[in-house]
Design a protein around this nucleic acid. Structure first.
Length: 621
DNA sequence: CTAGGGTTAG
């Protein structure tokens, strides 16, 4: 797996490290980094209007920190109040206790506050240790500032501390999460080669997770086998990581195999392991298997938690089985697991998918309020989406405007949903106005590819071809390089708007953009050729896509088969039907009804009749 | 002693 990095000379490692250690400073970050203002406000404010319980003795503090470092404080202000007290204690609390306070902030995901507390510790000359540094390096990684994390690595060394396996594991995770797996691999290989550290199970788990999440499951499995060979025993988390990844790849049975393997080895699955598997099974509507796992959990004394139940509520909701979703909520309450905002959002989404938006609204306004669960932006976005899908855009806009009054701000998803609603109802003028005035002028909104694709698709569907073309240009001027998905929308839009020539030119230009057509691209072009009455060219493209290792899907076959029917090429259709069935795809409704219409029509053909038996076989459906 | 890893929804 690490072949590529094995070839690197040792010096590359040093170069890459020293590259990161440019600004050796004890108090990164550079001035450009944004800090929370809470801290300064708080610690300089002597007359705190909101006094918190006092923790005057070292013993009390020790007890409190022990607890809060595991759970986090309830409120950020509480944590900062404690820090303020600590600064005024005599003698000063130990390094260990300051480290616990930082740990509590990390638990609360208040990474930038932790950084700013750390900075203040530097200023106040509070002594630091390797744990403190590791904690802050981790904070920078979570803030997506791996560059600062590396400069703090330098700071750590400068302070005379020796970075350990925790430090490097943190940095590896940071690099991976910054989409820099190559650097992560380089770091890992060189750390091992120069015996800087001995990777432990956490290091392996981190990399295995990073690899699997980026679609390199086979490499992840190789590393998994490798760690065992190196005498590092995989644990529950290692297995859970792989199981989750297999489930997400829809390889649930392989995941179940790993569950079996781990239990045989005496590694006990926990609630997270089971939750991943339940999610995987839900994706296939394998409810019986889900229930079996739930009872297996029961016999093993592993209680489902809110996460687990939320997965079930979501899955039932998505399948339209809203009563089952409600039952799960009832059950979890009985079991003492309190539903949270995710639970009710999943339920609301379920109602919306059934078109019952008003019932979803009632969940927000009645059930959630009664249970003291505060809706978030997403709760409203679900409702907004629900109303848009019911073509009640004005109602959606009402809710959109209600958001700030609830103390919430709409995010890019909310905006994009409204945009979609306008396009869906033919109100493309308002859509464009909304985009220009509400979205582009909002500096806080990061307009990405999804929004641009919504614009493009909406413009084409509203027959605004010129606007779509110029928007496609505009997005590129703004530094967004279209992916194949955007090209698919463009090519499809051009075809559907009667501009096949332009579509074809764009399709042919893909290689020059270093883009590979995917199955959807081919499907669109095949459909385009057929629309132009060019069955031969469509078939040629079908051959071409297979030659380019692009596997045809059910849409490809159905499109081509319909094309053959229209052109009375029943033999060709027969060949395609056989091929489709052998790939376990089946005829869709429109292909089937076209065929039945042909059979009923007057002009019957020998070859058509010959198809009858094959086409109507159960394998086709 | 403390620090790093895995699960839910667009």
């Amino acid at each position: 797996m690490m072949k590529k990095t094995n070839k690197l000379m040792p010096s590359s490692f040093l170069v890459s490290l020293s590259h990161s250690i440019t600004g050796i400073t004890c108090c990164p970050p550079p001035a450009s980094f944004q800090f929370h203002s809470h801290f300064l406000l708080f610690s300089t404010n002597k007359s705190n209007p909101n006094p918190k319980p006092h923790f005057p003795t070292h013993a009390n503090l020790q007890q409190l920190l022990l607890e809060k470092s595991k759970t986090g404080f309830d409120k950020l202000d509480d944590a900062l109040a404690v820090f303020d007290k600590m600064l005024h204690m005599k003698p000063l609390p130990s390094v260990y206790q300051f480290a616990q306070l930082l740990a509590a902030l990390v638990k609360m995901k208040q990474y930038s506050v932790a950084v700013s507390v750390f900075r203040d510790m530097c200023v106040q000359s509070i002594s630091l240790n390797i744990v403190t540094f590791n904690t802050i390096i981790n904070c920078f990684c979570h803030l997506n500032r791996v560059d600062y994390a590396f400069s703090l690595l330098a700071g750590t060394i400068k302070h005379g501390f020796v970075p350990n396996v925790v430090t490097y594991t943190t940095l590896i995770r940071g690099l991976i999460s910054q989409d820099n797996p190559a650097e992560a691999q380089l770091l890992f290989t060189n750390l091992v080669r120069f015996k800087v550290i001995q990777p432990d199970v956490v290091t392996y788990n981190t990399i295995i997770n990073g690899l699997s999440k980026r679609g390199h499951i086979s490499t992840a499995v190789m590393l998994f086998r490798y760690m065992e060979k190196k005498g590092c025993k995989p644990n529950t988390i290692t297995y859970s990581t792989l199981i989750d990844c297999l489930c997400k790849l829809r390889l649930v049975d392989q995941a179940l195999g790993l569950l079996h393997e781990m239990t045989k080895k005496g590694i006990t699955p926990n609630v997270i392991t089971y939750s991943s598997l339940i999610q995987g099974l839900c994706d296939f509507n394998r409810w019986q298997d889900v229930n079996q796992l739930l009872s297996e959990m029961n016999t093993r004394n592993i209680s489902p938690n809110v996460h687990t139940f939320n997965i079930l509520v979501d899955a039932y909701g998505k399948e339209g089985m809203i009563n089952d979703a409600e039952d799960v909520i009832e059950f979890m309450i009985q079991r003492g697991q309190h539903p949270d905002v995710v639970t009710y959002n999943a339920l609301m989404d379920g109602y919306c998918l059934r078109g019952e938006v008003d019932k979803a609204l009632a969940v927000l306004e009645t059930t959630m309020k009664r249970r003291g669960i505060v809706p978030n932006t997403r709760s409203y976005t679900i409702l907004i989406n629900g109303y848009c899908k019911k073509l009640k855009v004005d109602r959606a806009v009402d809710l959109f405007q209600q958001l700030p009054r609830e103390g919430l701000s709409p995010n890019i998803y909310t905006y994009t949903t409204i945009l979609q609603g306008y396009f869906l109802t033919g109100r493309h003028v308002e859509a464009q106005k909304f985009f220009k005035e509400k979205m582009m002028l909002n500096k806080g909104l990061k307009i990405g590819m999804v929004t641009c694709n919504t614009m493009l698709d909406g413009l084409f569907k509203n027959r605004c071809m010129d606007e779509a073309m110029s928007f496609f240009h505009l997005m590129q001027c703004n530094g967004l390089t279209p992916h194949i998905g955007s090209y698919n929308i463009m090519i499809n839009g051009l075809c559907k708007n009667g501009n096949f020539e332009k579509a074809k030119i764009m399709f042919e230009s893909l290689p020059s953009k270093d883009l590979l057509p995917n199955v959807r691209t081919y499907n669109i072009m095949i459909q385009g050729f057929l629309q132009e009455g060019l069955l031969d060219q469509a078939s040629e493209l079908f051959v071409g896509m297979k030659a380019n290792d692009c596997l045809p899907d059910d849409v490809t076959y159905n499109t081509l088969i319909r094309g053959c029917f229209h052109n009375k090429k029943y033999n060709e259709a027969g060949v395609l039907i056989d091929e489709m069935v052998s790939h376990r795809f089946s005829a869709d409704a429109s292909t089937a009804s076209l065929f039945l219409n042909l059979l009923e029509s007057k002009e019957q053909d020998q070859n058509l009749l010959a198809l009858r038996k094959r086409f109507l076989s159960p394998a086709c459906y």
